[in-house]
Amino acid sequence: MAKTLLLLQLSLLLVTCFTVFAEDENVAPAHPPTSHPPPAHPPTSHPPPAHPPTSHTPPAHPPTSHTPPAHPPTSHPPPAHPPVLPPHMPPTYPPKPSYPFARKLVAVQGVVFLKSCKYAGNNTLSEATPLAGAIVKLQCNNTAKPLTAQAQTDKNGYFLLLAPKTITNYAVHKCKASLVPSSKLPMCKQPSDLHGGVSGAILNVDKKKPLVSVNKVEYALFTVGPFAFEPKCPH
């Protein structure tokens, strides 16, 4: 009898515990847990910038590929003052010389040589020989029409040329002496320009003998040269 009563009590206790446990399972908790509680400030994966960037921001002053210069260059700038071509200049003459004596007539002296074939074409008188029969001309341009006079060399190649009577030592700076080509000189080819033999030589006062007397007439003596002819040489 006692065992039966004990079993009943045990059965009643099990039923009571089962009921309590069942009620506990059905009762919702006061604060149910959350698997992912929301943050106070949810993060953003890509926050927008204050000033969104632009892939092609235009510059304040866009560059230009061909900026025209302030003053474009010119291939041929015009000169400020166009060149003026020099006029045709007359031949120049030395300044008018001064003399310690009065006005005199003019005489010109000099020597003419024939160059050697060894030095043909060179401005030298090395191995040259005096030339007889050469003609020297004096030309003075102190009047509207040029005045000329000629003289011929002797066997020593020397000449003494008397200027026209209207030419004096006061106007001799406008006179020049030169060689005259001649076919009567078989050994000569042509005059050379040595000491102005072709272009014309300026007359120089002979300081050693400034005066010379010819036929009892006193002349102011001038010197030119020496002159020379080019030789005819065998090939």
Rank of each mutant, 00 (worst) to 15 (best):
residue 30 A to F: 13
residue 53 P to W: 07
residue 151 A to N: 09
residue 91 P to L: 08
residue 206 D to H: 04
residue 11 S to W: 05
residue 157 G to H: 07
residue 12 L to E: 08
residue 196 G to K: 07
residue 124 T to H: 00
residue 189 K to D: 07
residue 81 H to F: 05
residue 83 P to R: 11
residue 4 T to Y: 08
residue 67 T to Q: 05
residue 6 L to W: 08
residue 76 H to I: 10
residue 148 T to W: 02
residue 47 P to K: 13
residue 141 N to G: 05
residue 164 P to M: 03
residue 131 L to I: 11
residue 104 K to T: 07
residue 133 G to K: 10
residue 36 H to F: 11
residue 128 A to W: 06
residue 204 N to D: 06
residue 164 P to G: 04
residue 49 P to M: 07
residue 199 S to T: 15
residue 60 A to C: 04
residue 100 P to T: 05
residue 109 Q to D: 01
residue 46 H to P: 01
residue 28 A to N: 14
residue 50 A to H: 13
residue 156 N to G: 15
residue 174 K to Q: 08
residue 119 Y to G: 00
residue 212 V to C: 01
residue 133 G to H: 09
residue 195 H to V: 05
residue 91 P to H: 06
residue 99 Y to I: 01
residue 48 P to M: 13
residue 7 L to Q: 14
residue 234 P to S: 05
residue 122 N to F: 08
residue 111 V to M: 06
residue 2 A to F: 10
residue 168 T to C: 05
residue 33 P to E: 11
residue 52 P to Q: 10
residue 137 K to W: 02
residue 133 G to S: 09
residue 137 K to I: 10
residue 209 K to V: 08
residue 90 P to L: 13
residue 233 C to Y: 03
residue 19 T to G: 15
residue 3 K to A: 10
residue 62 P to A: 07
residue 178 S to H: 11
residue 9 Q to T: 11
residue 132 A to Q: 13
residue 204 N to P: 00
residue 97 P to M: 03
residue 42 P to Q: 10
residue 173 H to F: 08
residue 131 L to N: 11
residue 49 P to Q: 08
residue 94 P to C: 00
residue 7 L to G: 10
residue 19 T to V: 15
residue 229 F to H: 00
residue 85 L to E: 14
residue 156 N to V: 03
residue 183 S to G: 12
residue 84 V to D: 10
residue 56 H to N: 10
residue 112 V to S: 05
residue 183 S to Y: 06
residue 95 P to M: 03
residue 76 H to F: 11
residue 179 L to N: 02
residue 224 V to M: 02
residue 128 A to N: 07
residue 148 T to S: 12
residue 20 V to D: 08
residue 146 P to M: 09
residue 108 V to Y: 02
residue 35 S to F: 14
residue 182 S to C: 02
residue 124 T to L: 00
residue 156 N to Y: 13
residue 179 L to D: 02
residue 214 V to Q: 08
residue 179 L to R: 01
residue 129 T to Q: 14
residue 41 H to C: 05
residue 81 H to M: 06
residue 129 T to S: 14
residue 214 V to H: 09
residue 158 Y to F: 15
residue 77 P to H: 14
residue 72 P to D: 06
residue 223 T to E: 09
residue 221 L to V: 02
residue 82 P to M: 04
residue 56 H to P: 02
residue 224 V to F: 03
residue 93 Y to G: 03
residue 103 R to L: 06
residue 165 K to P: 10
residue 235 H to R: 07
residue 171 A to N: 15
residue 171 A to M: 11
residue 221 L to R: 15
residue 115 K to G: 00
residue 234 P to Y: 01
residue 164 P to L: 02
residue 158 Y to G: 11
residue 95 P to T: 04
residue 68 P to N: 00
residue 109 Q to V: 04
residue 188 C to Y: 05
residue 188 C to S: 15
residue 20 V to W: 14
residue 86 P to D: 14
residue 2 A to R: 13
residue 158 Y to A: 15
residue 101 F to Y: 15
residue 8 L to M: 11
residue 103 R to G: 03
residue 164 P to W: 02
residue 86 P to Q: 14
residue 42 P to M: 09
residue 62 P to V: 01
residue 160 L to Y: 03
residue 134 A to G: 01
residue 174 K to Y: 05
residue 37 P to S: 08
residue 28 A to P: 15
residue 189 K to G: 02
residue 73 P to V: 06
residue 130 P to K: 06
residue 6 L to S: 13
residue 60 A to F: 10
residue 219 Y to M: 01
residue 100 P to I: 04
residue 71 H to S: 08
